[in-house]
Design a protein around this nucleic acid. Structure first.
Length: 454
RNA sequence: GUGGUUGUAGCUCAGUUGGUUAGAGCGCCGGAUUGUGGUUCCGGAGGUCGCCGGUUCGAGACCGGUCUUCCACCCCA
């Protein structure tokens, strides 16, 4: 056999059935975004490395897919870097473009570049693939879709509330049980402030995050390993052990952070968001969780994460507020807040729970059997009426054996089959067969339409 | 990036301490049934055993490398 073709690690093909399912997810998400007044944009798959580099931390830079320059790029490379085999420095000379790593940074670039055409507050959504040179695992791909909603140019906490409503709406529509975890970067900053370890905030949250897995003693041990003083660890105890209702957590934080201005600001922000939410009808549970440390590189206020309750998979949605993001591109004082739905992980969750409504994945509803040229032409006319009524219908293109045509309908899970042979043509009718019940009857095209539309 | 794991027909997997022409189930194609699928019966096609190299008289089995899969860490959707 010839060499088997393959696709790169961490990428996937999608069959028609898989596409139907994925489109159902995308359409559902999109319709919610639109319902809240967000508008779509798209940005190129590749960006200049200068806009991408340094936005995701050192780790992120390594995970960027870089695109080789065109032409004789090695001729322009510094010889010393080449002989030193210095990959980092050589890369900057032979590559100036990269594949986008997320949709937030390209969006920030978009906002800055189009600031004079944009009306603020700008509410946009963006559904496009992103690429990461990560090592693939389950629920972790090198090419995957993100569905981002962001609003820039507004400091109002109403935006945070709206985003949680959107999450609630999307997951209700999809039928996935989730919990929204909420945190605030200002609280984390405040905590670091009062224990005098401002630079260790990431180590602290990473350690606290392991509480469920490894227990309190091991968490404290890890904190010691990260060179935190005993006094600092002591002060952290009420925070690590933070429990109870959101209200109780807020009260604890207020007293722990009473000497930190930033910390209290964060607490009051969360309190406001929770208060607003309480006046609305939200079915999703919202939980204050200090261990959320995601995106610390640019989040400055609220931090969100959504986890599926019935499937073990990483977070399926995440986001937060970033006050300074466009600042990197030269536009100051534009605050943004947004979240990103991970379509591929949602897809995995939907599949394991089999949550697709049947009608969302049917392709053809009605197949006309082909008995020959004359009959096919009769069917073609009937098809025009059927399609005009909004029914997805097709004619088997060849006058193959009946058995083969029926098997085709069966395989494609077509709901109804229409047969129009000599007898039917004489009566100006068709024989309509329900493929799941096996029942069939001689009806007019109009009658067939109403049966199918039921 | 670190450590581990996996790879035999389209799919799920057998394959005995290395020993002749590599098997099953499902699926696929054809027939039984010249206007009726999903059941049944009969027949058929399809594999340089992930790839490259090594050990051996002999490798799907052993060794090395490489790619791939999945897992943990890291990070994250």
């Amino acid at each position: 056999m010839a060499q088997k073709p393959a696709i790169p690690k961490g990428t996937r093909d999608f069959s028609p059935v898989e596409m139907a399912k994925r489109n159902y997810i995308f359409d559902t998400i999109k319709s919610v975004f639109v319902k809240y007044g967000y508008q779509p944009i798209e940005t190129p798959a590749m960006e200049n490395l200068s806009t991408l580099m340094g936005k995701y931390g050192e780790e992120g830079d390594k995970l960027l897919f870089k695109i080789l320059n065109s032409g004789d790029f090695l001729a322009k490379a510094n010889e010393q870097f080449l002989t030193e085999k210095n990959s980092v420095k050589t890369t900057t000379q032979i590559s100036e473009k990269g594949l986008r790593y997320d949709l937030t940074v390209p969006f920030a670039r978009f906002v800055v570049q189009h600031q004079n055409e944009i009306t603020f507050p700008f509410k946009r959504y963006q559904i496009q693939p992103v690429w990461r040179a990560d090592r693939p695992q389950k629920g972790r791909y090198r090419e995957f879709y993100q569905c981002d909603v962001d609003v820039v140019g507004s400091d109002s906490l109403m935006n945070e509330v709206e985003l949680i409503q959107i999450v609630d709406d999307v997951y209700n529509a999809l039928g996935i049980n989730v919990v929204v975890k909420l945190n605030n970067r200002k609280i984390l900053t405040g905590i670091a402030e009062i224990i005098g370890e401002a630079d260790k905030i990431i180590d602290i949250t990473v350690a606290i995050d392991k509480l469920d897995k490894i227990g309190l003693d091991k968490v404290n041990e890890e904190l010691r390993q990260k060179n935190l003083s005993e006094g600092a660890i002591e002060k952290l105890q009420p925070i690590i052990n933070l429990a109870g209702t959101n209200q109780e957590k807020v009260e604890t934080l207020k007293s722990v952070l009473k000497t930190s201005e930033v910390g209290l600001k964060g607490v009051s922000e969360i309190e406001s968001v929770l208060e607003y939410l309480a006046t609305l009808t939200i079915t999703t549970e919202v939980e204050l969780d200090l261990t959320l440390a995601r995106g610390l590189n640019y989040y400055t206020g609220a931090i969100f994460e959504v986890k599926a309750l019935d499937v073990q998979i990483g977070s399926i949605t995440g986001g937060g507020r970033y006050d300074d993001l466009t600042g990197i591109f030269g536009l100051k004082d534009v605050s943004g807040v947004g979240i990103s739905f991970g379509a591929d992980r949602i897809y995995d969750v939907m599949n394991t729970l089999d949550l697709y409504p049947k009608e969302s994945i049917v392709s053809t509803q009605l197949l006309f059997v082909n008995f020959g040229e004359k009959e096919a032409l009769y069917s073609l006319k009937a098809l025009q009426h059927v399609r005009a009524a909004g029914i997805k219908a097709e004619l088997y293109p060849d006058s193959a054996k009946m058995k083969k045509q029926m098997a085709y309908a069966n395989k494609k899970e077509i709901l109804f089959v229409a047969m129009a042979g000599e007898d039917e043509i004489l009566e100006n009718k068709i024989t309509l067969k329900n493929m799941s019940s096996g029942e069939q009857s001689l009806v007019t095209v109009e009658e067939a339409i109403s049966i199918i539309q039921k």
